[in-house]
Simulated scan of single mutants.
Amino acid sequence: MKRKLLRFSLLVTVILGAFSTFSFKKKAATSYFNTEGMELFFTVPTEAEAKFELKNQEVNYNLFLGKTYVGFKEALGFKESRNNYKIINEYGYMGKYQFGKGTLNMIGIYNSDRFLNDTKLQEDAFTAYASRNKWILRRDIDRYVGRTIGGVKITESGILAAAHLAGAGNVKKFLRSGGEIGFSDAFGTSIRYYLKKFSGYDTSWIEADKQAKVL
């Protein structure tokens, strides 16, 4: 009887020891997930709040493209539409680079719906229009690049950006009048502002082409 009682006591001791060890390990393991002192309260904006923030904040848009031609296109596209290929503004200007229908027709694009839904077509349209403007302004580029007019140092990329904004004819007037004849679009953006903002980009590879069109 004593022997059985001894065996039973020993068995109970072993079981209790194992349970205690398991409980200790479990407690030690869970201690790694202790959240005491941690900031666990977060606020996430609603969709409406997020859209409001994006609309109203000043965005520092920098793709680290430097002064390359791609950097030129992206910077200009962002200024025109925040690089929104689908947008149509209140004056009817469309896409990433805000083209009017008359300009699109001039470079061979007649379907506005197709234009808005074809990103490559919009990029090709930008290149074609830049080529036309470079041909129209080729003598002014040769004559005025490096000079300071209206308080702005003139560069080829600045001239092409200003022509995209105001048309090549208005850029000619500005340059040849020494900055006296200006132009601003419906939003108050001026030729002088574009000449300065988009100066110094590498647009040398753009071919000056009087008849440039999107094929």
Rank of each mutant, 00 (worst) to 15 (best):
L6P: 00
V12C: 14
T13I: 10
T13W: 08
G17E: 09
A18H: 05
T21K: 11
A28D: 13
A28T: 12
T30P: 00
M38I: 00
T43K: 15
V44M: 14
A48V: 12
A48S: 08
N56A: 14
N56P: 03
V59N: 13
V59R: 15
N62S: 10
L63D: 12
F64Y: 12
G66W: 08
F72D: 00
A75Q: 12
A75E: 15
G77R: 02
K79N: 06
S81K: 11
S81W: 14
Y85K: 08
K86Q: 05
N89E: 12
E90R: 14
Y91M: 02
G92R: 07
Y97M: 00
T103V: 11
N105Y: 06
I109H: 09
N111Q: 14
N117C: 13
T119W: 09
K120V: 11
E123C: 04
E123W: 06
A125S: 15
A128W: 04
R139Y: 01
R139N: 05
I141S: 01
G146H: 06
G146P: 12
R147A: 04
T148R: 13
I149F: 02
G150T: 06
T155S: 07
L165P: 09
V171N: 01
K173R: 04
L175W: 00
G178N: 01
G178V: 02
G179F: 04
G179C: 08
G179R: 05
F183C: 02
F183I: 03
F183D: 01
S184C: 10
K196I: 02
F198V: 03
S199A: 09
S199C: 09
D202Y: 05
A208L: 05
D209E: 07
Q211K: 07
Q211Y: 10
A212P: 06
